[in-house]
Design a protein around this nucleic acid. Sequence first.
DNA 1: AGAATAGTGTCTGTTAGACACTATTAG
DNA 2: CTAATAGTGTCTAACAGACACTATTCT
Lengths: 250, 250
Amino acid sequence: MNEQEFLAGYDPRAYPAVAVTVDVVAFTIRDAALHVLLIQRAYPPFAGFWALPGGFVRPEEDLTAAARREFAEETGLGGEPLRRVHFEQLASYGEPDRDPRMRIVSVAYLAFAPDLPEPSAGTDAGDAEWLPITALTSRELAFDHRRIVEDGLERARSKLEYTPLATRFVGEEFTIAELRAVYETVWGHPLHAGNFHRKVLSVPGLVESTGNTTEHGGPRGGPRAKLYRAGDARLLHPALLRPAREETVR
Amino acid sequence: MNEQEFLAGYDPRAYPAVAVTVDVVAFTIRDAALHVLLIQRAYPPFAGFWALPGGFVRPEEDLTAAARREFAEETGLGGEPLRRVHFEQLASYGEPDRDPRMRIVSVAYLAFAPDLPEPSAGTDAGDAEWLPITALTSRELAFDHRRIVEDGLERARSKLEYTPLATRFVGEEFTIAELRAVYETVWGHPLHAGNFHRKVLSVPGLVESTGNTTEHGGPRGGPRAKLYRAGDARLLHPALLRPAREETVR
DNA sequence: AGAATAGTGTCTGTTAGACACTATTAG
DNA sequence: CTAATAGTGTCTAACAGACACTATTCT
């Protein structure tokens, strides 16, 4: 039997019935707080519960494309703003009983976006909102979505250290102080303004000057800040390391 | 309609037919070279080609369990030696046309093992072997498996830096020189023996002394080395960073 | 004026890496 | 003996972090 004959006689139904979904952990920063996008489920299972946006992967559709589509559907976002959103695969979750309907393996994606407008609830979602991650503890999520959000959060915190991810949370042009706010918000730590400033400018390819400055100083005074855009580095060297936390090492 | 009624009327067949497989990128070190486990496919598609060990996820089987099972089946390995093999999820691959049979999403796993015996070809595999990764360029792999191996390699190199992964490639008791050989082999760089020694001992929780020494000195002379076992650290702080390579940063 | 902030200067303790050296063992 | 290796000492340049200071802008 050659390859052609084999494929002609091949029956996909002979293999176990497993469905594949994508779930999107979308982070943005608004009001100096990290937010995650949640939708309220309109249908069972977990009807009424809050959950990550996501859904079944369509035939002929790439996994990343499915993640972008689900994100766009649930947020009503498209065009240029959507293009500035960065997607990357997080991990896959496949516990046999994680969904009561059937065996479902979910490929989770991370999305990082500058401050986005309020989501307009899409077709599948009863409602959609940006929830501050500090409010996560007091909200029950559907499926194993809490675990997925936690994994995504740790990934985001870690990637701030050695990639220019932080520049994805700010606009095209930004000040060093805005960039510092991203780090402080995601890490949940205040950072030393002066040292951070010097460090950011010393890492090759992290930011490059636009030559412009802000129109005005800060709301409570201070000089106008120089504006920068994201540089061409894909990895930061040396990295911007989080202040050491002995507890989390072991 | 409540949750029970919904689930009773639920038809899994209504959803797209997608199959889920696991593929395992298993690394070991033999003869001071990094090797990856490959099997020769006995059946179409890609019959005769070399590929990663893997297969369909069974119902009621966890993804990690599937990876361990496939690895065990293809290597004939079980019991205590298998327990010393470390598994972790790498990433998922789901290009619509990556498999000619049907839509298949593969969840790839990484496995790290101390020097293992020759694999005994399992049921599905025509043959199995440990291939030095230096020989990968001159071998065509099935599906998108070359890409998966490359991703796994980069993950392994990177995780050596900030986790105690290297201790998974050596025996229960090991010398600092053996540990250094792991780093040199995986990174493909010679390291400075003296500085490496001091660095390893200075990282909290990386290794702990057993109080023993080797029976003999090296084959070409030298004092007996002290023996260590893996410590309890799960993250290395400070990390053992690779020598900076400017080229790869951009 | 007074307060807040952008950005720079300087000092200190820690670390990576280069180099050198001693002690121990195989052949 | 000689060669090779384990492990340590020491120096230097780079870096993180603390602190201080100037310049600029808002209220």
